[in-house]
Design a protein around this nucleic acid. Sequence first.
DNA 1: CTTAATTAGTGGCATATGCCACTGTCTGCG
DNA 2: CGCAGACAGTGGCATATGCCACTAATTAAG
Lengths: 154, 154
Amino acid sequence: MTEAGKPGFSDCNNATLRRAARSLGRFYDDALAPSGLKSTQFGLLFQIHISDEPAMGAIAEALIMDLSALGHTLKPLIRDGYVETFPDKDDRRVKRVRLTPQGQAKLDEALKLWSVAQRQFEDKVGAEQAAKLRAALDAVADLDLGMPTVAPSS
Amino acid sequence: MTEAGKPGFSDCNNATLRRAARSLGRFYDDALAPSGLKSTQFGLLFQIHISDEPAMGAIAEALIMDLSALGHTLKPLIRDGYVETFPDKDDRRVKRVRLTPQGQAKLDEALKLWSVAQRQFEDKVGAEQAAKLRAALDAVADLDLGMPTVAPSS
DNA sequence: CTTAATTAGTGGCATATGCCACTGTCTGCG
DNA sequence: CGCAGACAGTGGCATATGCCACTAATTAAG
């Protein structure tokens, strides 16, 4: 039992990360509320915006999210007319995504609200610190913490 | 430097945080899979475990999550017999929560799986770095990025 | 002691995410 | 060419989270 301190406590990297995500998510959500978009939807629209009619798989990969989850998350945005999809010319399995004019307009609107929240956040923690944190988070996200028992035989 | 142009890009602290959360969440989920618990459920059981028959509100506050969300998240755990609730002796509005024996056993089981994932993660990023990251995330989570237009009038 | 204001949870509704099974497409082989 | 296997998405199911409206219970007034 005396294994040098509690085995767990709030040392869980994942739990800490989720907690922060809930907290920050709420903050950004509040800021974006006037636009009617959630912070997740804003992020998704933005990702589509900076990509060139990306395939769903490409978006999912960029955001490190499950393809089916992306499909589900996309539905409200399609329903509300912010996004539309169309089949790839060369591969009918591939479905590409783009913003509609309304989607573009909504994104522009949301960007203004977002920048306020973003600035407010960075004022609190410092731009330097924030950038460092994002870098660390990106590093974590891109870590290859894949499945176990994977021995690169060759 | 940022590409001196786009107002946003992936500079969104929230988007970056969520992305990392999805990535890491998946990793911990995979590790905990054999126990049948999700990483979120594990975290919740643990929080209950380290508290003393906490009231729902207390748990929600500790985890920075919406009280109703907590209620929802708790349901599967109650249904599966890992957790049980009971009214507070002095205030019947308050509902307290505790682990059942099975819940305790399940937590013990999951802790073993968790520690493997935790170690694996810290081996990758370094315990130092991980601790620093958690500290930063806790700081962000506890930031008082509250509601706007708050004038300390009276 | 009644009544208003406050507090703790619940339930409904909507989005966020993931996994799995399944359906079209494509591709590589024989 | 024709079929097995890889690939991209879809749909169903389950959990995660939040907000809002509402109820029950406690406390603060008067």
